[in-house]
Design a binder for these strands. Structure first.
Length: 874
DNA sequence: GCGGGCACGC
DNA sequence: GACGTACGTGCCCGCT
């Protein structure tokens, strides 16, 4: 049965406003009425489950009732501005929920509600009216219930005919007569003076209506009462008229257009967050699970998996909830293929011979989401997953790395395939994350697997259209397995070494702290930029060189400029340096080192960066210190996992600039690399027009900074910062560089042009990056997009190359039957652990594979070294 | 739990 | 001339 909920918008907003303290958010906007209104909405949606809904508002000040009685609603307090300013927000909230709202000149919300209640009852709707106003009770019928707020806003009472009879002893229609007699001070309806609720009810029970009471005045006992009624005959009739809800308001919209159900939950959450209704967001999310109308999905829960259920092609979910999938719990599995949709409980799955064999089969074609996660999580449980051929997350990432989410639910939504709830909705997040009961879990996993099953051909087609199929199949998919193996292998650390360094650092930090506090003339938290700023720039009166949003900048480049002014500064810089080492690297690494094995298992994110590089987390092993000797010593703690083995490290020399030489075709650059010159010296020669002998260390330093800028796409501003020169000088520098390498200039212009035409740039192996801002009228946005257009093919192609080298290298290790293991990748560097008897071959093989993995117009060069620790492999 | 400031790598 | 300037991760602080 259809159910229409009608809400008296003004009344509920008023109630909410006065029931709740005058909350405001941090922008100073009052939100208490919106908040109360929203909680009421959520409650109504949850409890009433309406199929149709409308919120009616009063429009304007005057209504047709004012023609009858111009003092109607007179003497009423003006709506406080703190409330009236909230009405637009209430409307916004309703729009987010996609709930109809209506207001019309001349009529009150009551009249709109009355009109619709009448119409809907005649069409066999069940109608529920929500208000704080007793007047509405006159609408009650066998089809219409009126819910009145009692106390606060969510404490309500539902009135049907029986309850009205019980409370007042009259029928709903007689509520109007009651108002006619007793009046209503809040609406300034006069009624009959001297007649209150008691008398009115008594009269109505006896005579039935205002008219009949007036016709029968002679039968009424009490002289005074007779007089009052006689004197106020007209006023009583007028009051009745004023209290009568008008049920024929012009309203064109067909009832069916008031249907409620589909709306964008994101919009609601966004608005709730804007208004800082953070407490409602999770509440809403869990309700959202039932709000979103998902079509039913059928599936089987398999207690026993047999060959019957397994086919060559399938989609698979191996649900790992923890962000870190190493040694993680698997919550359940789901499988979709032409035989059906299946959920398998984890324990059942792991002990099913048929399933485990199927997972191990490398001739199957399995579609998953985040292949590495599934393979690694199963791997830790001793189960091999070998048949993955399609990773939906990876496909989505390659098709457009700029998309902020490659979650199944988002990809499904984007491609309009499959109906999936967001993980966050099903599981919650943060500390409140938990696995739902099996039925809900099973359905969620099956829906995800089903979506993958449907998404796979679509994404595959798009990859083919983009000419990215090869990148996907031959590079990223194999690489994901290789990375998973590297992560699982882990890298061994010398805990005692770390602990020893930690003790030493702690001692020195204490001494430094004491010195700094003494020089500052008091104790403070050196790690707090706020407190440090106060000490340096207020207490000690040093000149503040730079400001941040929140106060003084105390960054290293600022402090370096102040080093001459006060002795304290050098100690602070040193304190910072050692503090960083201690907290991030010593304590940080010890925290993530596995106890039994003393190994660290990082995770590489292969579907994140905009350029195609990897990133590394938990811990990040791509930013272990190297520049300063003090920090570099951390690397002494990274050791081979087997005795007698060594660490071998190989890094590409100037891979980005070689890529630039190749794609620009610049003869001078190519020639420099073919003759294996020091590229920064060469750049200095070309930019400053001097011979090799004439290049000073300063010139080389400048040239190096320019090359750095080219590689990372920095601006003239960025270059000016790194060289400590003006922006103008930096700009001239870049111009001179481009004049020296005309083909580079051509490449830069060409790639920007291409980005403008196509909307994206590509790398050597067809990786893409879309640049929406390339046509922006905003200079900054456009400039940034242009630098990105120039830089991404360089950095991205370099990423392509090392990734391919990793795939090649993994293959060669198998081919050559080597025990050596690839452990880490740091953007242009690969780290291995190698047994003694393979040292000779690896020292030759690794650079060879890295150099030969692609053939460019310039040679690639990889330098290789080895040692007992990562530190020593230099 | 989150944003800001800072610092590490490439 | 604007206005904020390679990316990514993680620590601590200070606020909610």
């Amino acid at each position: 049965m259809k159910k229409l909920v009608l809400i008296d918008g003004n009344s509920i907003a008023y109630r909410a406003f006065f029931a709740l303290p005058l909350l405001n958010n941090d922008k100073g906007v009052y939100t208490n009425a919106v908040y109360g209104f929203t909680t009421m909405l959520l409650k109504i949606i949850e409890e009433e489950k309406p199929t149709h809904m409308l919120v009616a508002f009063d429009a304007g000040k005057t209504t047709f009732r004012h023609k009858t009685f111009d003092e109607y609603k007179g003497g009423r307090q003006k709506t406080p501005p703190e409330l009236s300013e909230q009405f637009p927000l209430v409307r916004e909230m309703l729009d987010a929920f996609n709930i109809s709202r209506y207001e019309v000149e001349n009529y009150e919300a009551d009249d709109i509600i009355g009109t619709l209640a009448k119409d809907a009852s005649s069409k066999d709707f069940e109608v529920k009216v929500f208000s704080g106003d007793k007047d509405l009770l006159q609408l009650v019928s066998d089809k219409v219930t009126v819910v009145l707020t009692k106390k606060g806003i969510t404490n309500v009472e539902a009135y049907d005919e029986a309850l009205i009879a019980e409370k007042y002893g009259i029928s709903p229609k007689q509520i109007i007569d009651m108002k006619g007699l007793m009046g209503d001070s809040s609406d300034n309806i006069p009624g009959v003076p001297g007649v209150g609720e008691k008398t009115a009810l008594k009269l109505l029970k006896e005579f039935g209506s205002v008219e009949k009471v007036l016709d029968s005045i002679d039968q009424i006992s009490g002289k005074k009462m007779k007089e009052k009624l006689e004197e106020n005959r007209e006023q009583a009739l007028m009051s009745k008229e004023l209290a009568t809800i008008f049920v024929d308001v012009p309203f064109e919209t067909p009832l069916d257009d008031l249907s409620f159900g589909e709306y964008d939950k994101q919009d609601v959450v966004k608005l709730m967050k804007e208004l800082e209704f953070t407490s409602l967001v999770p509440k809403f999310d869990t309700e959202g699970a039932t709000l979103e109308e998902l079509e039913e999905i059928t599936y089987d829960v398999l207690d026993e998996v047999t060959e019957e259920h397994l086919t060559k092609e399938a989609s698979l979910i191996v649900e790992v909830l923890s962000e870190n999938y190493h040694q993680a719990n698997i919550e359940g599995l789901a499988l979709v293929n032409e035989k059906g949709r299946f959920f398998i409980e984890t324990q059942q799955a792991l002990k099913s011979r048929a399933l485990v064999e199927w997972l191990k089969d490398d001739t199957t074609k399995i579609t998953v989401f985040d292949a590495k996660r599934a393979v690694v999580a199963l791997g830790w449980k001793g189960v091999l997953l070998n048949g993955v051929t399609f990773d939906v997350q990876m496909a989505s990432y390659l098709l457009d790395p700029s998309l902020s989410s490659h979650e199944i639910s988002d990809v499904a939504k984007r491609k309009a395939k499959g109906q999936v709830q967001e993980d966050e909705v099903v599981y919650g997040k943060g500390a409140k994350q938990k696995v739902p009961q099996q039925a809900q879990l099973a359905e969620h996993l099956v829906r995800k697997a089903d979506a993958l099953y449907q998404l796979q051909p679509i994404l595959e087609q798009e990859l083919i259209e983009n000419e990215q199929e090869k990148l996907f199949r031959e590079l990223e998919m194999p690489l994901s397995i290789i990375l998973g193996r590297m992560e699982t292998t882990g890298v061994k650390v010398d805990k005692q070494q770390l602990e020893h360094m930690g003790e030493n650092l702690n001692e020195r930090l204490q001494e430094l702290e004491q010195t700094i506090h003494e020089l500052a003339g008091g104790a403070f938290n050196i790690n707090s930029p706020k407190q440090l700023g106060e000490v340096l720039f207020e207490k000690l009166g040093l000149p503040p060189i730079k400001k941040t949003k929140t106060g003084y900048s105390t960054s290293a480049d600022v402090l370096e400029k102040l080093a001459e002014d006060h002795e304290i500064v050098q100690y602070i810089l040193h304190y910072r340096q050692l503090g960083k080492l201690n907290s991030t690297y010593i304590e940080g690494l010890l925290k993530v080192t596995k106890d039994e094995t003393n190994k660290i298992h990082t995770r590489y994110n292969q579907a994140l960066t905009q350029t195609g590089r990897l990133s590394s987390t938990d811990p990040n092993l791509q930013n272990i210190p190297i520049r300063l000797e003090e920090g570099r010593k951390i690397r002494k703690a990274f050791i081979p996992s087997e005795s007698g083995w060594k660490i071998v490290a190989a890094d590409y020399s100037q891979i980005e600039l070689r890529v630039l030489a190749h794609i620009s075709g610049d003869e001078k650059l190519i020639e420099a690399f073919q003759s294996d010159m020091d590229i920064h010296t060469k750049t200095a020669m070309d930019v400053f027009h001097v011979s090799e002998e004439e290049v000073t260390s300063n010139m080389r330093r400048s040239a190096k900074a320019v090359n750095f800028g080219i590689v990372y796409g920095i601006s003239d501003f960025g270059l000016s910062q790194s060289l400590g020169i003006t922006r103008k000088e930096a700009g001239q520098f870049i111009d001179r560089y481009l004049a020296s390498y005309p083909k580079v200039k051509e490449y830069m212009d060409h790639t920007i042009e291409e980005a403008r035409e196509k909307g994206y740039v590509t790398t050597l192996l067809q990786r893409r990056r879309y640049l929406a801002d390339i046509t922006s009228r905003n200079f900054n946005k456009r400039s940034f997009a242009e630098r990105t257009a120039m830089n991404t093919p360089i950095q991205g192609s370099a990423a392509d190359i090392i990734k391919r080298a990793m795939v090649d290298m993994a293959e060669r290790l198998v081919q050559e039957n080597l025990q050596s293991r690839m452990l880490l990748q740091v953007h242009d560097e690969l780290i291995f652990e190698v047994p003694e008897n393979e040292m000779e071959i690896m020292m030759k093989l690794v650079p060879e594979v890295m150099e030969q993995t692609v053939s460019l117009d310039v040679p690639l060069k990889a330098d290789v070294s080895y040692g007992e620790t990562w530190y020593d492999a230099k």
